[in-house]
Design a binder for these strands. Structure first.
Length: 312
DNA sequence: AAATTTTACAACCGCCAAGTA
DNA sequence: GTACTTGGCGGTTGTAAAATT
Protein backbone atom coordinates (compact mmCIF):
# COMPACT_ATOMS: atom_id res chain seq x y z
CA UNK A 1 0.00 0.00 0.00
CA UNK A 2 1.47 3.29 -1.03
CA UNK A 3 -0.71 5.62 0.95
CA UNK A 4 -3.71 4.88 -1.23
CA UNK A 5 -5.55 4.33 1.96
CA UNK A 6 -4.94 4.23 5.66
CA UNK A 7 -5.57 1.46 8.08
CA UNK A 8 -7.53 2.46 11.14
CA UNK A 9 -8.06 -0.37 13.57
CA UNK A 10 -8.94 -3.25 11.30
CA UNK A 11 -10.53 -1.24 8.57
CA UNK A 12 -8.81 -0.12 5.42
CA UNK A 13 -10.33 3.12 4.25
CA UNK A 14 -9.95 4.41 0.74
CA UNK A 15 -8.83 7.97 0.14
CA UNK A 16 -12.33 8.87 -0.99
CA UNK A 17 -13.82 7.49 2.20
CA UNK A 18 -11.36 9.52 4.21
CA UNK A 19 -12.07 12.59 2.10
CA UNK A 20 -8.40 13.37 1.72
CA UNK A 21 -7.51 16.82 0.53
CA UNK A 22 -5.12 17.55 -2.32
CA UNK A 23 -3.65 20.61 -3.94
CA UNK A 24 -2.38 23.77 -2.33
CA UNK A 25 -2.27 23.94 1.43
CA UNK A 26 -4.42 26.48 3.22
CA UNK A 27 -3.16 28.76 5.95
CA UNK A 28 -5.24 26.84 8.47
CA UNK A 29 -3.67 23.56 7.44
CA UNK A 30 -0.22 25.08 7.68
CA UNK A 31 -0.91 26.38 11.15
CA UNK A 32 -2.30 23.05 12.25
CA UNK A 33 0.77 21.25 11.03
CA UNK A 34 3.16 23.78 12.54
CA UNK A 35 1.43 23.72 15.89
CA UNK A 36 1.27 19.97 15.97
CA UNK A 37 4.95 19.55 15.18
CA UNK A 38 5.86 22.26 17.68
CA UNK A 39 4.12 20.22 20.36
CA UNK A 40 4.79 16.64 19.32
CA UNK A 41 7.75 16.82 16.99
CA UNK A 42 8.25 15.29 13.56
CA UNK A 43 8.09 11.70 12.47
CA UNK A 44 5.52 8.97 11.85
CA UNK A 45 3.88 11.13 9.27
CA UNK A 46 0.76 9.05 8.71
CA UNK A 47 0.04 8.98 12.42
CA UNK A 48 0.86 12.66 12.64
CA UNK A 49 -1.59 13.51 9.86
CA UNK A 50 -4.35 11.59 11.60
CA UNK A 51 -3.61 12.88 15.08
CA UNK A 52 -3.37 16.46 13.92
CA UNK A 53 -6.72 16.11 12.19
CA UNK A 54 -5.28 16.95 8.82
CA UNK A 55 -7.08 15.41 5.88
CA UNK A 56 -3.81 14.87 4.10
CA UNK A 57 -1.59 11.90 3.52
CA UNK A 58 1.46 11.54 5.69
CA UNK A 59 3.57 12.05 2.64
CA UNK A 60 1.87 15.31 1.85
CA UNK A 61 2.43 16.54 5.42
CA UNK A 62 6.07 15.55 5.33
CA UNK A 63 6.61 17.29 2.03
CA UNK A 64 4.85 20.44 3.12
CA UNK A 65 6.90 20.57 6.29
CA UNK A 66 10.26 19.82 4.72
CA UNK A 67 9.89 21.98 1.65
CA UNK A 68 7.99 24.91 3.01
CA UNK A 69 7.12 25.18 6.68
CA UNK A 70 10.35 24.11 8.34
CA UNK A 71 11.79 27.16 10.10
CA UNK A 72 15.21 26.80 8.55
CA UNK A 73 13.98 26.74 4.97
CA UNK A 74 15.53 29.55 3.00
CA UNK A 75 13.36 31.23 0.47
CA UNK A 76 14.04 33.72 -2.26
CA UNK A 77 16.53 33.99 -5.06
CA UNK A 78 19.32 31.52 -5.39
CA UNK A 79 22.50 33.47 -4.78
CA UNK A 80 25.46 33.48 -7.13
CA UNK A 81 27.41 31.39 -4.71
CA UNK A 82 24.58 28.88 -4.53
CA UNK A 83 24.31 28.79 -8.30
CA UNK A 84 27.99 28.06 -8.54
CA UNK A 85 27.69 25.28 -6.01
CA UNK A 86 24.73 23.75 -7.79
CA UNK A 87 26.52 23.74 -11.12
CA UNK A 88 29.62 22.28 -9.58
CA UNK A 89 27.87 19.63 -7.54
CA UNK A 90 25.58 18.65 -10.36
CA UNK A 91 28.58 18.14 -12.61
CA UNK A 92 29.83 15.70 -10.02
CA UNK A 93 26.73 13.89 -8.97
CA UNK A 94 24.12 14.51 -11.60
CA UNK A 95 20.51 14.59 -10.49
CA UNK A 96 21.27 13.67 -6.90
CA UNK A 97 19.17 16.55 -5.67
CA UNK A 98 18.96 15.60 -2.04
CA UNK A 99 22.70 15.10 -1.90
CA UNK A 100 23.30 18.44 -3.55
CA UNK A 101 20.83 20.07 -1.18
CA UNK A 102 22.89 18.90 1.78
CA UNK A 103 25.53 21.39 0.78
CA UNK A 104 23.14 24.30 0.44
CA UNK A 105 21.81 24.87 3.93
CA UNK A 106 18.17 25.81 3.95
CA UNK A 107 17.61 24.91 0.34
CA UNK A 108 15.48 21.90 -0.44
CA UNK A 109 16.09 19.26 -3.04
CA UNK A 110 12.85 20.34 -4.65
CA UNK A 111 13.99 23.91 -4.97
CA UNK A 112 17.32 22.92 -6.48
CA UNK A 113 15.62 20.53 -8.84
CA UNK A 114 13.24 23.28 -9.92
CA UNK A 115 16.13 25.67 -10.40
CA UNK A 116 17.91 23.18 -12.58
CA UNK A 117 14.91 22.36 -14.67
CA UNK A 118 13.61 25.86 -15.18
CA UNK A 119 16.87 27.74 -15.61
CA UNK A 120 19.66 25.43 -16.65
CA UNK A 121 17.73 23.01 -18.79
CA UNK A 122 16.00 25.87 -20.48
CA UNK A 123 19.29 27.06 -21.89
CA UNK A 124 20.31 23.59 -22.96
CA UNK A 125 17.06 23.42 -24.82
CA UNK A 126 17.71 26.78 -26.45
CA UNK A 127 21.11 25.55 -27.53
CA UNK A 128 19.44 22.47 -28.90
CA UNK A 129 21.80 20.23 -27.06
CA UNK A 130 21.22 17.67 -24.39
CA UNK A 131 21.74 18.90 -20.87
CA UNK A 132 23.90 15.84 -20.24
CA UNK A 133 25.99 16.26 -23.36
CA UNK A 134 29.68 16.98 -23.11
CA UNK A 135 29.20 20.18 -25.06
CA UNK A 136 26.70 21.55 -22.64
CA UNK A 137 28.74 20.49 -19.65
CA UNK A 138 31.81 22.13 -21.14
CA UNK A 139 29.90 25.31 -21.76
CA UNK A 140 28.82 25.28 -18.15
CA UNK A 141 32.21 24.50 -16.77
CA UNK A 142 34.41 26.67 -18.89
CA UNK A 143 32.09 29.53 -19.60
CA UNK A 144 29.30 29.96 -17.11
CA UNK A 145 31.05 28.83 -13.98
CA UNK A 146 34.13 31.01 -14.46
CA UNK A 147 31.84 33.88 -15.22
CA UNK A 148 29.93 33.23 -12.05
CA UNK A 149 33.14 33.23 -10.08
CA UNK A 150 34.04 36.46 -11.74
CA UNK A 151 30.74 37.99 -10.80
CA UNK A 152 31.06 36.87 -7.23
CA UNK A 153 34.48 38.38 -7.11
CA UNK A 154 33.32 41.55 -8.79
CA UNK A 155 30.51 41.92 -6.31
CA UNK A 156 32.92 41.33 -3.47
CA UNK A 157 35.30 43.94 -4.79
CA UNK A 158 32.45 46.37 -5.21
CA UNK A 159 31.27 45.72 -1.70
CA UNK A 160 34.70 46.40 -0.30
CA UNK A 161 34.75 49.72 -2.08
CA UNK A 162 31.28 50.81 -1.09
CA UNK A 163 31.25 49.40 2.38
CA UNK A 164 34.72 50.20 3.56
CA UNK A 165 33.42 52.19 6.44
CA UNK A 166 30.88 49.61 7.43
CA UNK A 167 32.33 47.55 10.21
CA UNK A 168 30.86 46.62 13.53
CA UNK A 169 31.64 44.04 16.10
CA UNK A 170 28.58 42.04 15.16
CA UNK A 171 29.48 42.11 11.55
CA UNK A 172 32.92 40.82 12.22
CA UNK A 173 31.55 37.99 14.31
CA UNK A 174 29.00 37.10 11.68
CA UNK A 175 31.61 37.28 9.02
CA UNK A 176 33.85 34.88 10.86
CA UNK A 177 31.04 32.37 11.00
CA UNK A 178 30.12 32.81 7.39
CA UNK A 179 33.69 32.72 6.23
CA UNK A 180 33.98 29.43 8.01
CA UNK A 181 30.78 28.09 6.46
CA UNK A 182 31.67 29.33 3.06
CA UNK A 183 35.10 27.80 3.29
CA UNK A 184 33.53 24.50 4.24
CA UNK A 185 31.38 24.63 1.17
CA UNK A 186 34.11 25.81 -1.10
CA UNK A 187 36.42 23.26 0.41
CA UNK A 188 34.12 20.65 -0.94
CA UNK A 189 34.60 22.22 -4.31
CA UNK A 190 38.32 22.06 -3.79
CA UNK A 191 38.55 25.78 -4.04
CA UNK A 192 41.76 25.83 -2.13
CA UNK A 193 42.67 29.02 -3.84
CA UNK A 194 39.92 30.95 -2.14
CA UNK A 195 41.54 32.91 0.64
CA UNK A 196 39.81 34.36 3.62
CA UNK A 197 40.45 37.85 2.38
CA UNK A 198 38.38 37.25 -0.68
CA UNK A 199 35.71 35.27 1.09
CA UNK A 200 35.58 37.73 3.89
CA UNK A 201 35.08 40.63 1.60
CA UNK A 202 32.36 38.69 -0.14
CA UNK A 203 30.62 37.84 3.07
CA UNK A 204 30.80 41.40 4.24
CA UNK A 205 28.33 42.22 1.53
CA UNK A 206 25.72 39.96 2.99
CA UNK A 207 25.73 41.81 6.28
CA UNK A 208 25.48 45.34 5.13
CA UNK A 209 22.26 47.12 5.90
CA UNK A 210 21.66 47.86 2.25
CA UNK A 211 22.28 44.38 1.05
CA UNK A 212 18.77 43.33 0.26
CA UNK A 213 19.08 43.67 -3.47
CA UNK A 214 22.75 43.48 -4.18
CA UNK A 215 24.17 41.50 -7.02
CA UNK A 216 25.12 38.90 -4.52
CA UNK A 217 22.01 38.36 -2.56
CA UNK A 218 19.61 38.82 -5.38
CA UNK A 219 20.29 37.36 -8.71
CA UNK A 220 18.67 35.23 -11.22
CA UNK A 221 20.56 32.52 -12.92
CA UNK A 222 21.79 32.93 -16.43
CA UNK A 223 21.52 36.60 -16.45
CA UNK A 224 18.00 37.47 -15.59
CA UNK A 225 18.89 39.44 -12.52
CA UNK A 226 18.20 43.09 -12.25
CA UNK A 227 21.29 45.18 -12.25
CA UNK A 228 22.64 48.54 -13.18
CA UNK A 229 25.07 49.69 -15.79
CA UNK A 230 27.45 50.77 -13.12
CA UNK A 231 28.21 47.14 -12.49
CA UNK A 232 29.44 46.51 -15.98
CA UNK A 233 33.03 47.50 -15.54
CA UNK A 234 33.39 44.89 -12.86
CA UNK A 235 31.80 42.17 -14.90
CA UNK A 236 33.96 42.70 -17.91
CA UNK A 237 37.28 43.58 -16.46
CA UNK A 238 39.89 40.88 -16.28
CA UNK A 239 39.65 39.32 -12.85
CA UNK A 240 42.60 40.53 -10.87
CA UNK A 241 43.61 38.90 -7.67
CA UNK A 242 43.36 41.27 -4.76
CA UNK A 243 46.72 40.21 -3.50
CA UNK A 244 49.81 38.78 -4.99
CA UNK A 245 49.76 35.21 -3.85
CA UNK A 246 47.80 33.83 -6.72
CA UNK A 247 44.69 33.16 -4.75
CA UNK A 248 42.12 33.92 -7.35
CA UNK A 249 39.29 31.48 -6.73
CA UNK A 250 38.60 31.46 -10.40
CA UNK A 251 41.82 29.59 -10.97
CA UNK A 252 40.07 26.48 -9.88
CA UNK A 253 38.15 26.44 -13.09
CA UNK A 254 41.12 26.31 -15.35
CA UNK A 255 40.51 23.79 -18.02
CA UNK A 256 43.32 21.41 -18.66
CA UNK A 257 44.59 23.08 -21.78
CA UNK A 258 43.21 26.54 -21.59
CA UNK A 259 43.61 28.86 -18.69
CA UNK A 260 40.68 30.38 -16.97
CA UNK A 261 42.03 33.81 -17.71
CA UNK A 262 42.14 32.95 -21.36
CA UNK A 263 38.57 31.82 -21.15
CA UNK A 264 37.58 35.08 -19.65
CA UNK A 265 39.62 37.41 -21.74
CA UNK A 266 40.21 35.43 -24.85
CA UNK A 267 37.45 32.99 -25.52
CA UNK A 268 39.29 31.69 -28.50
CA UNK A 269 41.19 29.57 -26.09
CA UNK A 270 38.14 27.46 -25.77
CA UNK A 271 35.75 28.69 -28.41
CA UNK A 272 36.51 29.48 -32.02
CA UNK A 273 38.03 32.74 -33.15
CA UNK A 274 35.58 35.49 -33.68
CA UNK A 275 32.99 34.34 -31.23
CA UNK A 276 31.39 37.20 -29.43
CA UNK A 277 32.32 35.90 -26.07
CA UNK A 278 30.60 38.51 -23.99
CA UNK A 279 27.35 37.78 -25.65
CA UNK A 280 27.69 34.15 -24.81
CA UNK A 281 27.87 34.88 -21.15
CA UNK A 282 24.61 33.98 -19.48
CA UNK A 283 25.22 36.72 -17.00
CA UNK A 284 25.95 39.27 -19.61
CA UNK A 285 24.53 42.58 -18.52
CA UNK A 286 25.28 44.49 -21.62
CA UNK A 287 22.75 47.16 -22.45
CA UNK A 288 21.74 47.23 -18.86
CA UNK A 289 19.24 44.49 -19.37
CA UNK A 290 20.44 41.04 -18.68
CA UNK A 291 17.30 39.16 -19.36
CA UNK A 292 18.47 36.47 -21.66
CA UNK A 293 19.72 38.73 -24.41
CA UNK A 294 22.73 36.48 -24.11
CA UNK A 295 20.92 34.00 -26.27
CA UNK A 296 20.48 36.21 -29.28
CA UNK A 297 19.96 34.51 -32.59
CA UNK A 298 23.38 35.25 -34.04
CA UNK A 299 25.25 33.78 -31.18
CA UNK A 300 22.88 30.90 -30.84
CA UNK A 301 23.59 29.96 -34.42
CA UNK A 302 27.29 30.45 -33.96
CA UNK A 303 27.51 28.34 -30.87
CA UNK A 304 25.23 25.78 -32.36
CA UNK A 305 27.57 25.50 -35.31
CA UNK A 306 30.54 25.20 -33.02
CA UNK A 307 28.87 22.45 -31.07
CA UNK A 308 28.02 20.62 -34.26
CA UNK A 309 31.62 20.83 -35.46
CA UNK A 310 32.70 19.53 -32.13
CA UNK A 311 30.59 16.49 -32.71
CA UNK A 312 32.42 15.57 -35.87
C1' DA B 1 -7.13 45.98 -22.20
C1' DA B 2 -7.68 41.29 -23.24
C1' DA B 3 -5.86 37.01 -24.78
C1' DT B 4 -2.17 34.04 -25.03
C1' DT B 5 2.23 32.19 -23.80
C1' DT B 6 5.93 31.46 -20.66
C1' DT B 7 7.95 30.97 -16.23
C1' DA B 8 8.51 29.51 -11.54
C1' DC B 9 7.55 26.55 -8.11
C1' DA B 10 4.45 23.85 -5.03
C1' DA B 11 2.60 19.50 -4.93
C1' DC B 12 1.85 14.93 -6.45
C1' DC B 13 3.23 10.26 -8.31
C1' DG B 14 5.55 5.99 -8.49
C1' DC B 15 9.37 3.42 -7.23
C1' DC B 16 12.48 1.60 -3.95
C1' DA B 17 14.89 0.37 0.35
C1' DA B 18 14.69 -0.11 5.16
C1' DG B 19 12.10 -1.06 9.10
C1' DT B 20 8.47 -3.56 11.57
C1' DA B 21 4.95 -6.89 12.97
C1' DG C 1 10.69 -15.49 6.07
C1' DT C 2 7.39 -12.46 4.37
C1' DA C 3 3.87 -9.17 3.93
C1' DC C 4 3.09 -4.69 4.97
C1' DT C 5 4.30 0.19 6.32
C1' DT C 6 6.97 4.15 6.14
C1' DG C 7 10.00 7.54 4.50
C1' DG C 8 13.03 9.21 0.93
C1' DC C 9 14.06 10.20 -3.71
C1' DG C 10 13.77 11.72 -8.55
C1' DG C 11 10.49 12.65 -12.17
C1' DT C 12 6.40 14.93 -13.53
C1' DT C 13 2.33 17.78 -13.40
C1' DG C 14 -0.77 21.68 -12.24
C1' DT C 15 -1.36 26.31 -11.73
C1' DA C 16 -0.76 31.20 -10.36
C1' DA C 17 1.83 35.03 -11.73
C1' DA C 18 4.43 37.45 -15.02
C1' DA C 19 5.56 38.53 -19.59
C1' DT C 20 4.43 39.01 -24.24
C1' DT C 21 1.52 39.62 -28.22
Amino acid sequence: MDEKGRRTSNTLLSEDEMDLRRGPWTVDEDLTLINYIATHGEGRWNTLALSAGLKRTGKSCRLRWLNYLRPDVRRGNITLEEQLLILELHSRWGNRWSKIAQYLPGRTDNEIKNYWRTRVQKHAKQLKCDVNSKQFKDTMRYLWMPRLVERIQAAATASVTTNKAYTSENNLKNNEIEVHNLKDKMGLMDLSAMNSDFVGSYVMQSHTPENSSTALSSSDSFGTQVSTKSDLTDYYSVPVSRNNNNTNPADYYQPSQTSYSNCITSPSGFFPQGLDFQSLDPWNLQNGDSSDNFWNVENMLFLEQHLMNDNM
